[in-house]
């Protein structure tokens, strides 16, 4: 398959909030050789369902199979490939960095936190723990800047995604329309 046709897809999966469902979904990916870049699960608005966001990479053919195979699982209620429509995705990261490697590191860490609108959620004489939320590029950029300080520990939540609310044609301005199609 052409490497250029490989695209990142954000797939929302609504499943029965039952024992063993996560392993069915994860098992499907491993059994059929599909990639999972990230997977996050949480209870849905209705406690009987769980909401998954799966980030996967593949060409159209593979992603078509992934969504079909997910739909085929008895415990799957709904599958939406968000990549076809406008959507918002966010990830949260918590990074514990050294702040004593170089003399100015404590201030540098503070500055980086400000730039990325990260919160310092824990502090010790030799470390800060930064928490930031954003799109993957932002998270990667922050991690890149923190690396010279010495990252002690890093935890990422995995991406969650949600479709943007569709704007009704009547209330849609022409400018907005062109934005969406672009």
């Amino acid at each position: 398959m052409n490497a250029l046709s490989q695209k990142r897809h954000y797939i929302q999966v609504l499943v029965e909030n039952r024992f063993g469902v996560l392993s069915r979904v994860a098992g499907l990916f491993s059994a059929r050789g599909y990639n999972i870049e990230s997977l996050s699960v949480g209870a849905g608005q209705d406690p009987s369902v769980a909401q998954m966001t799966i980030v996967t990479v593949g060409d159209d053919h593979v992603v078509e199979q992934i969504t079909k195979q997910l739909n085929k699982l008895v415990d799957t209620i709904k599958v939406v490939d968000l990549s076809a429509t406008p959507f918002v995705c966010r990830e949260t990261v918590m990074v514990k960095v050294n702040t004593t490697t170089r003399p100015e590191d404590r201030q540098e860490a503070f500055r980086i936190a400000e730039i990325f609108r990260a919160h310092i959620v824990d502090t010790s004489p030799a470390t800060y723990t930064l928490m930031a939320t954003g799109e993957e590029e932002k998270i990667e950029a922050m991690i890149g800047l923190l690396r010279p300080l010495g990252i002690k520990e890093l935890v990422r939540s995995g991406t969650i995604a949600i479709a943007r609310e569709e704007v009704k044609p009547s209330s849609k301005s022409s400018r907005h329309e062109s934005e969406i199609t672009a």
Partner: peptide, 16 residues
């Protein structure tokens, strides 16, 4: 067996 048979059944159940 529920874990073992997951990928070779259409569906499976553990009755709890």
């Amino acid at each position: 067996i529920v874990g073992i048979s997951r990928s070779c059944t259409k569906h499976n159940y553990l009755v709890r």
